[in-house]
């Protein structure tokens, strides 16, 4: 079962309801959503694919690692596959910890690792009919 990958629309609120814990005072939710533009070009939609089994395993291992490292009570990550429309969630990461500092740090770590290390790829489809694989995220432009 691909717990961390979904070909269906991600139900962020259902995941959020699973993220609460009596020992967690800070819960951080990051939703990566599809923008309607990239470098001045109008984006129609994104298409995601993955090396499914490997990506799922890597995300599971990443969540375990983050839980250990930051003492998280809850760590959730789900990435969408297939066609994703503008304003829809492409990836969600939720982290719950005793305090906000750990929850924020772990959340940032998880999303950065998903973007740069997990075998997942986006193809940007533009309104003018062109498409391009592998749009870089903003952190690679800094």
């Amino acid at each position: 079962m691909m717990t961390h990958l979904s070909t269906e629309k991600i139900d962020v609120m259902t995941l959020w309801e699973q993220a609460h814990h009596p020992e967690a005072g800070g819960v951080v939710l990051f939703s990566g959503e599809v923008r309607n533009n990239h470098q001045g070009k109008e984006v129609s939609h994104l298409y995601y694919e993955a090396a499914d089994q490997m990506a799922n395993k890597m995300i599971a291992a990443l969540l375990d690692e983050a839980k250990q490292r930051w003492g998280l009570q809850v760590a959730i990550a789900v990435h969408r596959l297939g066609k994703v429309s503008v304003m829809e969630t492409a990836v969600v990461v939720i982290t719950a910890a005793a305090h906000r500092e750990e929850a924020y740090a772990a959340n940032q770590y998880i999303i950065d690792r998903i973007k740069h290390h997990v075998p997942l790829w986006k193809c940007e489809h533009f309104v003018d009919g062109e498409r391009a694989w592998g749009g870089h995220c903003s952190c690679q432009q800094k």
Partner: peptide, 10 residues
């Protein structure tokens, strides 16, 4: 053998 281009998830 999986041939894996640079990741671009998220």
């Amino acid at each position: 053998v999986l041939v894996i281009p640079p990741s671009s998830g998220g």
